[in-house]
Nucleic acid binder design. Sequence first.
DNA 1: GCCAACGTTGGC
DNA 2: GCCAACGTTGGC
Length: 165
Amino acid sequence: MKSEPEAYSIDDLARDKTAEWDGIRNYQARNYMRDDMRVGDWVLFYHSNAKPPGVVGLARVCKEAHPDRSAFDSSSKYYDAKSDPEEPRWLMVDIEFVERFAATVSLETLKAAPELAEMLVVQKGQRLSVQPVERAHFDRVLALAGARRGPRRGTAARASAEARA
DNA sequence: GCCAACGTTGGC
DNA sequence: GCCAACGTTGGC
């Protein structure tokens, strides 16, 4: 999952412990949250528009997709007049903080890793703020990060689904 | 700040 | 249903 640190950073999540992932206004990203993200799934937290951009930490899904109320709030920058409260168009998941990496695994580093050549986030034109991550890629990023936590080796690959890229 | 890539909108 | 115009994303 991507976020501009100026808007909401991994440090903000560390402070808040959990966060509602509001403001997603892209159907494909919404569908990933709705259809593929389940409680307990691991999440790579990525800082976009950062110096450098890259994966900065780990989180987990702690609440499955539910209506994004900001779409109904006319004072919110995420307001969407077309989202009917009776049939919410936009959803969000909640995530909980797990770990901030000692150092950012930069986009440059991701691009330089042969094993990550197929990872979505390194593909040209890939702008989705919520995107699925293959288990092998996920594990590789954790290794590059020197992460202390993460899905256990050998457990089901349900692991998630989401990395932010 | 630039701009390529991409999604959405709306006229026709 | 096409497609031009426009807005956003996000690396650089």
